[in-house]
Design a protein around this nucleic acid. Sequence first.
RNA 1: GCCGGCGUGGCGGAACGGUAGACGCAACGGACUUAAAAUCCGUUGAGGGCAACCUCGUGCGGGUUCGAAUCCCGCCGCCGGUACCA
Length: 871
Amino acid sequence: MSQRRKQYPFDQIEAKWQAHWETSGTFRTLNPGEPGFDPARPKYYVLDMFPYPSGAGLHVGHVEGYTATDIVARHRRKLGYNVLHPMGWDAFGLPAEQYAIRTGQHPRTTTEGNTARFREQLKRIGFSYDWSREIDTTDPGYFRWTQWIFLQLYGSYFDTEANAARPVHELTARRRAGHPGESEADLRAWVDARRLAYIAEAPVNWCPRLGTVLANEEVKDGVSEVGGFAVERRPMRQWMLRITDYAERLADELEDLDWPDGIKALQRNWIGRSEGASVRFALEGHPATIEVFTTRPDTLFGATYMVLAPEHPLVEEITGPAKRAAVEEYRERVASKPDLERIDLSREKSGVSTGARAINPVNGEAIPVWIADYVLMSYGTGAIMAVPAHDERDFEFARAFGLPVRQVVQPAGEEPGGNACFVGEGVNVRSGFLDGMPTPEAKEAVTLWLEERGLGARAVKYKLRDWLFSRQRYWGEPFPIVWDGERHEGLPESELPLLPPDLDDFRPTGEGEPPLARVKDWVQLPDGRRRETNTMPQWAGSCWYYLRFCDSGNGDRFVSEEAERYWMGGERSGGVDLYVGGTEHAVLHLLYARFWHKVLFDLGFVGTREPFQRLINQGLVLGADNQKMSKSRGNVVNPDDVVAAFGADSLRLYEMFMGPLEQGKPWSERGVEGVYRFLGRVWRLAMEPEGEEHWAISARLGDVEPSPALLRVLHETIRKVGEDTESLFFNTAIAQMMIFVNAMTGERIRPVRVLTSFLHVLNPYAPHLSEELNARLHTAFPGLSGAELAYAPWPEWDEAVLAVSEVEIVVQINGKLRDRIRLPAGSPEAAVLERVRASEKIGAALSGRAPRKVVFVPDRLVNLVVGGEKA
RNA sequence: GCCGGCGUGGCGGAACGGUAGACGCAACGGACUUAAAAUCCGUUGAGGGCAACCUCGUGCGGGUUCGAAUCCCGCCGCCGGUACCA
């Protein structure tokens, strides 16, 4: 293909227009208050998930989502919206730091090189970003505000009455008033334990290979998501964010969002709300009680033993002397067991008896208390009542240790008995006052019974855990926190940004001490206080970047109130109008960002409850072999190569033509050539070759009246592409453009006005080619078109032009197609039926039978229903 | 296991419950060319017929409907998420 003449000179055209957009600031977006800003226009904020600028460069998967949003942004500009369409870099992250550890090259150097390459690649595809708003999470001018938001979290607590965050000083004042005698130190400790950002000594996911702790979300199947290294649990002092307080709102407020059901389900699942009851069991001969959470209080009569998590604080107290040694041994074994093993052996139940016995509150029965690692300290109360007849895990455990199984719920219409496990709903038996009740009723009844006696209450639990927020890394935001002995406090705002010290050895210490701890003169303050040496996780910067884009140059505030109100307010409940990105962020990024946003909302810093009103997940772009693209498979497509061979417009168009945006689909080199040829056909509608190198305005172009048929195709194209673009059905929009071009190609003399109208429609999709052709036509036919398309109004279509005089009506017999007849549009039923009766085919097919019923759909079809066999 | 999504020609994919297969790719035929490429014009779900046409066809089995790729029930297969969450 190298020697072949190009379909059109895309290389010159694309470079020319990209330079033009850059030098004339075409896509610079004004903020309210700036000269020239037009407040009368509606706003539209269309956002991509900004990339981590990896060393591998831009991926065709990035290009898919970015092209989609770019088409929407360009379309909206032509519809008269003020469009915010920004781009930036989520540039803190492990790869740059790992590279630094290996080579000694500072992560900043690596990061700068990578971002420069990404920026260059994106510009070569012609995305209409407002580059003046570009942000970089590693820029002190940016992370200053990430640190500032952390201080807001640190300075707040969750007020359960208001179901919202409030400043911590309010809590302090209230506590002081209520507990006048309390010492300052105790008061402080009490308040500190309630901050949204707090310190906890908790079992964490420690990854020795990476030398850092990881969030639950960063651990998959017992190994780190990055690198796949073994992760073990060990107790460490860490910063945590109290996201669990927001579990209810994060789940409930998902409802009104215009997000794919699958993503909502994923988040709901992650938050994991369960409704049930908490029940308190007394202990035989011991003052303590065991509280459990259950979703099946109706099975309480079937509880035959209890299980505490091995780490449960009560274990120590209640274990009988005879069992002490075994319990100790078991607890140690579990504690040292790496997570990987704990998962591998998941189906093998293990545990030991404590010797203690608990009293079942409903029947006074004494049942043994065990410890077992299938009960997790981190969920519910860390203790369960075991009902082997109606819970599979309990059933397995009971079988392994010979514990009794007592059926108390029977499936409707079956006899009681049997030693199997039944987890469904049914009717209670052997359950005292619950006997005969169907499951839902029994749940209600027993909960009420427990509540009346102060033995339990209805309860809601969430799977969601608090967010482990500190990392033992160099390449992240330092915490704006200083320690005075055991006391911590936030830095004053005036000291932000807190910059990390420069370093030449980036290795973690291996024992949980972060690299920053090595820089003594940074850590140690003159007054004896010490800086926090952990850094924030990579998620921090992406939790609020969409806000910064509204006002990225602001040096006084994270975003001005005016800019936030304008760009984030608006349609329905507000926020980003369209957010496009991959499913890999369905739970982590999207949940964290929603959490921060809600805190900022509670504190009055933003005006919307949710950040992202409408979310779309683009599907995976697979290799030509239908497998995920990967170096090892050798099926990776580099966007640069595609741009070099076929041009940016072809790359854009192909990625949109492959199939529905949200669906995964394989790459096809042939497919790229197909759209490349299509763009060549568009070019040749207006241009013809002149000599070896040049192109001239085509002699077949003229300022002539289009035929009604051609005009109809044009208007249909304007209508369909407009509608499909709005619905993000880009593949069918492009198909319609192809239909138009096929029609136009057949015209002997091509009406130039029809062509210029079409170029508006093509413009969001293939901006370079359309601008170039329009500019050339503008020169050749002055007065017929504006000089530039980017902001020129989207053309209008006319219903009258679309109207057809004659329609084809389908004639069916019993739903089967038998004939088609042509009739004037809008023909009444009687006229249509007359023609149907005249049809030979229909007469033959009816063979004398009379229609029992006639279904008539105007301008579409007639269905004759005839009785069974023959009349 | 559970939760989501998807099964339509040789391939990517179109089809408000109303003509299944738009558009593109591939393939085949023709025009142009000394020739090829490029381009332009056709054909192309399967089976049958010289033909006009006929029959069958949207993973499988049922159902609702005048009419189902589309809605409902039950399976099968693939992809993604999740996993002792009481």
